[in-house]
Design a protein around this nucleic acid. Structure first.
Lengths: 245, 245
DNA sequence: TTCACCATACTACCATACTAGTTGTATCAG
DNA sequence: CTGATACAACTAGTATGGTAGTATGGTGAA
């Protein structure tokens, strides 16, 4: 575990603050399921691993806890939160709401030519991830696609929100890699979204994005069955604590 | 200034951590424009004001900076961010996207009877704020209305996002109180939303929420003209720093 | 008068020290 | 053998000290 973290640490920029670098390293590790749901994270141990003090580690924890990726229990410890089916469904709801609005707006106001070109280019590169299957690369390009679309209509706050809730969803994707991620289908959905935007058909764009964002609903119940230990027993996250008493 | 902060500090719960209490106090003060946009906040001074150490103050600053309410400039200071027209429009976009989805969902799946009753009750109490005009009370009830609706369909994450972006919008409301806040109009919009939900008419509910969330667009340009010193010069927030050089 | 330079007084960031609360374990009484 | 209790070994939260970088105001030279 520590070796993987160390590697990610080296990749971060020296110019950023220790807090930001730690946040990024831990966030990535949690999303990629390298830090297992339920696992305890030790402030002290991580501080020693990276040769920094506890304080910036603690501050990174605080930020991660606000994103719902870890849970800080005072005087007890900090833990990677288990995936909760409820949390995933809620994150999906928010993401669909925001991204459908983005697609609709992009179609009705139109996208600048260079942005459209970049989106087409991203789709092309995604196609090249189908055979041979390159999931890591596709995930990157997928994120780039959605980011480019949101920023393309000048909605940075929308992208920030999407990025935040996406973390919950991406953990599920990493669970299901590679078997149940139909790259080819997802790429064509991207193409359909951009087609509708280019035709300036707002309703078609919204509908295409809706379909795209509904994809995860297919695999979720199956994953809960196959990886029960990764999931919080079904209930709302807010009441998760009481249940363990 | 300090006296107002002290008063809010007394209201916070002793059981919460110092960091959370400070965050809440500062957040409220910023939203209510008691801490002026552009004003410098001193870690040390605030620590002394509340008789706590600098560390929890610093952690509260970090959280506020993630919500876009303050800007932490290393080695320089921490400042209340000026309202940016761009940031307000982006926050509005996200809020409309999420809340329209909430309204649509509430209408299509239906609300439990007690939730509907609570919403109707909130609307009634809002009506009582019209004459004599009680803006503070109305703001509270308004927030309660939107929270109850989101939580009523079990979308806590949606409410969390709304709450976050709402901070940017509420600062504008406090600017325009009391003259340009048409309480009566807003209350009737709330009623229209709930009517549509009760009729289980998803499209009507979505449309009613859309109209409601578009209200702020009426007053914004006028406010920018009347309170230019409260606003960032028009441009995207991301490039705001460079402009000051 | 104007400009370059330097001393000073800030700032945020990180490290370290201390406090207080929780948990597991070992010990001892019954 | 069982159950209660005291203690030891953790934890996060808070306090305080040190460091490096930035802004500013004054001083002296041009």
């Amino acid at each position: 575990m520590n070796s993987t973290l160390q590697a990610l640490w080296q990749d971060t920029r020296d110019s950023d603050s220790v807090r930001q670098r730690l946040h990024e390293v831990l966030r990535q590790s949690i999303i990629r399921m390298e830090l297992a749901p339920g696992q305890a994270l030790s402030e002290k141990e991580l501080a020693e691993t990276f040769s920094v003090s506890r304080q910036p580690v603690r501050e990174a924890f605080i930020r991660l806890s606000e994103a719902g990726l870890v849970e800080v229990r005072p005087q007890r410890g900090t833990f990677v939160v288990k995936i909760s089916q409820q949390a995933v469904l809620e994150a999906r709801f928010v993401r669909e709401a925001v991204e459908v609005a983005v697609a609709r707006e992009a179609a009705s106001r139109g996208l600048d030519r260079p942005v459209l070109a970049e989106l087409r280019e991203l789709i092309e590169r995604q196609r090249r991830c189908i055979e041979p299957a390159d999931h890591d690369r596709f995930f990157q390009l997928d994120e780039g696609f959605h980011r480019t679309l949101s920023l393309g209509i000048g909605q940075q706050a929308a992208w920030k929100v999407t990025e935040e809730v996406k973390a919950q969803l991406d953990r599920v994707r990493y669970l299901s890699v590679p078997e149940s991620t139909p790259i080819d289908k997802l790429v064509e959905q991207h193409a359909a979204i951009i087609d509708a935007i280019e035709w300036r058909d707002a309703e078609a764009a919204a509908e295409a994005m809706h379909i795209h964002q509904s994809e995860i609903l297919q695999s979720l119940p199956d994953l809960v069955r196959r990886f029960p230990e990764m999931f919080q027993p079904t209930q709302t996250p807010a009441f998760a604590e009481e249940s363990q008493a």
